[in-house]
């Protein structure tokens, strides 16, 4: 019974995935050495580890959306990993809370070289409304090196894709 309903639903829905946006190199804040060489090795596959370093959870909503059918992030070769040890890119949200400062540094250290960091959202880029205080380190770049900054509160899924692709584009 359920199988019949599922198959009908799949047929009725059809394809909803959209072509991916181009990388936006303007979001890059840092050029790493060996960029060209690295990209030759990476080809078209990329593994991302998301780290919430103190976010309000708004940016997380849009990162979830990337995994839906419209944006089809896995279809363009980008996959989310459960461990930083498997990651090429860290996608970091939030102003970095002081209670997570050590955890973020450890996550960065656990990520093998070569690696890129994409700071996400107003808070990740500049501390946002939370700023720097006794409890907040502010922007991600205050704690670990950042390669790409994607502003927005929260950034749209398209902006996130442009930023992730900018990290690894020529």
């Amino acid at each position: 019974m359920a199988t019949h309903l599922i198959l009908r639903k799949i047929l009725d829905t059809g394809f909803v995935s959209e072509p991916p946006p181009a990388a936006d190199p303007a979001l890059r804040t840092r050029e790493q050495d060996l960029q060209e060489e690295i990209l030759k090795v990476f080809g078209q596959a990329l593994t991302v580890r998301h780290v919430d370093a103190g976010s309000c959870n708004g940016c997380e909503l849009e990162i979830h959306a990337l995994q839906g059918a419209h944006y089809n992030i896995e279809g363009i070769g980008v996959k989310f990993a459960a461990s930083p040890r498997h990651a090429d890119v860290l996608l970091v949200t939030g102003p970095v809370s002081r209670n997570l400062e050590v955890a973020l540094k450890r996550t960065y250290e656990a990520t093998p070289e070569p690696k890129w960091v994409v700071a996400v959202g107003e808070c990740g880029c500049n501390g946002g409304l939370f700023g720097e205080s006794y409890a907040s380190c502010g922007r991600v770049a205050n704690v670990i090196p950042v390669d790409v900054e994607v502003p927005g509160c929260p950034p749209t899924p398209v902006a996130l894709l442009q930023g992730i692709l900018a990290a690894v584009s020529r």
Binding site: L129, F130, S133, Y134
Partner: peptide, 19 residues
């Protein structure tokens, strides 16, 4: 819990209504 404590209540102090 408490890892994402970012001092929100302190931050409110002195803000305008809009902020």
């Amino acid at each position: 819990l408490g890892y994402t404590h970012k001092g929100i209540e302190k931050r409110f102090e002195g803000m305008t209504a809009e902020e």
